[in-house]
C-alpha cells in the first residue's frame, strides 16, 4: 500500500515535470560556440598534456549532446 502510494506520488511528479526548453527554443544551444569539445583533436592534446604532468585524470569529457541539436 505504502509502495503504491510512493509510486503514485512519483508518477504524478513525472506528469508535472515537463521538458521546459522546447526544441524551437534551442537555437543558442545549437550555436557551434556552445558545443562541448568544439575541436576534438585539440581537446585530445590538452588532455594528453595534462595527464602526462598531473596526477589527476578522468572525468574531463562530456556525455555530449543534451540539447538534441548538435
Amino acid at each position: 500500500m505504502g509502495c503504491s502510494a510512493v509510486v503514485m506520488l512519483m508518477l504524478s511528479g513525472c506528469a508535472s515535470i515537463e521538458p521546459w526548453v522546447k526544441p524551437y527554443q534551442r537555437d543558442k544551444l545549437a550555436d557551434p560556440i556552445m558545443a562541448f569539445g568544439r575541436h576534438p583533436v585539440a581537446l585530445q592534446h590538452v588532455a594528453h598534456v595534462q595527464d602526462s604532468r598531473e596526477a589527476a585524470k578522468g572525468a574531463n569529457g562530456s556525455g555530449g549532446g543534451g540539447c538534441g541539436c548538435n
Binding site: V21, R26, K28, F36, G61, S62, G63, G64, C67
Partner: peptide, 17 residues
C-alpha cells in the same frame, strides 16, 4: 564513466561526469 548532461535553460547547459 558515468555522464549526465542537462539543458537547464535556452542558454545554459551543464554536465556532471
Amino acid at each position: 564513466k558515468l555522464g549526465w548532461t542537462q539543458v537547464l535553460s535556452s542558454s545554459w547547459i551543464a554536465a556532471m561526469n
